[in-house]
Nucleic acid binder design. Sequence first.
DNA 1: GCATTAACACATC
DNA 2: GATGTGTTAATGC
Length: 221
Amino acid sequence: MTVSIKEFLSSEDLFKVSDLRGLFKEMPDLKLQRLDQLFDESDRSLYLVLDGMVRVCSWCKGEEFVEDYFQAGELVNCKILLEDSPQQFAEVMSRESTVKKMPQFVARELVRSNESFQRALMSSIYTSWNRSQQRVYRVSALNSEQKVIHFLLEYIGRSGRRVGLEYVIKPVMTHEEMRAFAGVSRQTVCTVLSALRRKAILDFNRRYLIIRDLKKLKSYL
DNA sequence: GCATTAACACATC
DNA sequence: GATGTGTTAATGC
């Protein structure tokens, strides 16, 4: 019997945080502060984010290239399931973050034997893959204002809470952090956000970002 | 022409 | 004092 990926992922809620927590229950909690390193390039463990936000990076021409960002319920360093040396490292973006760490051999055994783990893995890899595709699209097909807005829509969809008719992200990443995902300069992020604020489409400061008019924001793309 | 870089003032942690 | 924000002139493609 063949089952579509969508059916496989949604037939049961087996990839919720609570289920993954169960699989990681033997693993100790790691509590980290902003900018702490979660793992380095030689690390072969799989991580589950319980709280906060982390970014996965690699070195490119002596500079840090930000690959992706992860938050509660997501698996990080999934590449170690398929290769031994993904050459990636991770650090904490939020003020604090709690994660659980699972050795490579344990994670690989779960891939073979545990269906709920398979679902969680599929879901985590799928969403990360989607983000990468969206990023390629925005970097190659949009002008700089649209790049920022395109990223903002992804970010609000992922991290935003609906409050009445508005959407709030709190805490919010810095302009420098958004720069990496939007694919523009830090100053451009700031300029675009400030222009949108003048138009009352959104509001922001260091602590939060509020989208006041999502419809209008979307109309810029 | 569009976007980045550089530079600087100012705010906040 | 370090880090983040906001603005603008110069520079580059």
